[in-house]
Design a protein around this nucleic acid. Structure first.
Lengths: 200, 200
DNA sequence: CGTTAGTTTGAGGCAGATCAACTTTGGTGG
DNA sequence: CCACCAAAGTTGATCTGCCTCAAACTAACG
């Protein structure tokens, strides 16, 4: 998130490799796989999904240029609890630490940065958890559209993705958006997937 | 969580103070306060709540003997996003690092342990988030009762707390529990707050 | 013994899931 | 360039889980 104080090239005690121009839909890793490495986004857009036994997918996090992701697993359980998927053609750097303890000690800035990122992600997740329990879909869809289109305006979010991020069904996201447009709270656009927020 | 590899007394570059026998209901810190310190539980039980604008409270995390809590804030945003409340009379150690960077560098074991804890908490939160979106209250209440009574059997969880953890209304938690008892999936106990899981 | 907090049960209503059908868009291959 | 297909969008009609409100009961406590 934000300006990163370093690039992967500066990292010590790890092996780097580049994954060039991965096309939309490519799976970087899958939920349940044993974690051996984490990633840096040179360009493109990555979505992290969590899939329930029922098959329902939640869109939990999104990463773009200059973000690191997939490192949570290195410090906790050694299996990814999310599936990482390419949303926009991306080039990633695959970072495989020789030894995690050592890696963190020899890259203190990175360690601190990842820790900070983790802390903020936890705050976000728990805030969304509280909202999921007690807020209506209206609130959640508004929040989601706002967040997704403001933070990642380079991408045309589908209603399916908005719903998966908000935690409701696609039809619900569509109906609510339609209602918002009627009230002028959402710009009415000819192409449905090219949503633009106006206010809030 | 689990066996902690060290006690607060071993910590360097910080100031320790003991909070003796805090009684049930005491607020350790409140959501929105600026974070200056974190805590270690010598004994007792602490609940972390997140409160929405609407006033609805979610029970997000619970800590007991030998757990550290309240440290997320030191690494991310500098305000607590939860309110910490005493559930069972507790004695805590208040740990105030002189300087966080320095603190982590001079207590690498602790740093790594907190990192690991944070990583696991994020996994848990995101799994709950996915469930919150797509599972029925039945599943969520069963999960919650199981988790709460198995992990913290020393405490008689109220239906209100079970509901706040599950993310539903108290009435719903009660009705579901009643149904579970009828089906023999939950031990039928005279005193409602002394729930005991039998199977699953 | 009144007050407060949690429990319990009932009735009513609605948000949103579910199911189904049809349209639109975009991409691929012949 | 057109035919075809997959994926997303759209809309309508149910159906139901559970929230909401209300009221009464029990237990603990100063």
């Amino acid at each position: 998130m934000e300006n990163h104080p370093f690039s992967p090239q500066q990292l010590k005690h790890c092996h780097l490799s580049v994954l060039h121009t991965l096309e939309k839909g490519t799976l970087i890793y899958s939920q349940g796989e044993i974690a051996k490495a984490f990633y840096f986004v040179q360009h493109g857009l990555i979505g992290l999904y969590h899939i329930l036994e029922s098959g329902k997918e939640s869109l939990l996090r999104i990463y773009h240029t200059n973000d690191y992701f997939g490192f949570r697993t290195l410090f906790g359980e050694n299996r990814y609890h999310c599936t990482a998927k390419v949303l926009v053609e991306a080039t990633l750097i695959h970072i495989q630490p020789d030894n995690i303890q050592q890696f963190v000690q020899h890259n203190p800035d990175v360690g601190h940065f990842l820790l900070k990122t983790l802390a903020n992600e936890l705050q976000d997740a728990e805030h969304r958890l509280a909202k999921a329990a007690y807020n209506k879909s209206l609130d959640k869809v508004i929040d989601s559209i706002y967040f997704l289109t403001e933070t990642y305006p380079e991408y045309c979010w589908t209603y399916r993705e908005i719903a998966e991020y908000a935690g409701c069904e696609t039809e619900t996201a569509i109906r609510i958006s339609k209602e918002l447009k009627r009230n002028g709270l959402l710009k009415n656009t000819p192409h449905p997937s090219k949503l633009q927020k106006s206010s809030v």
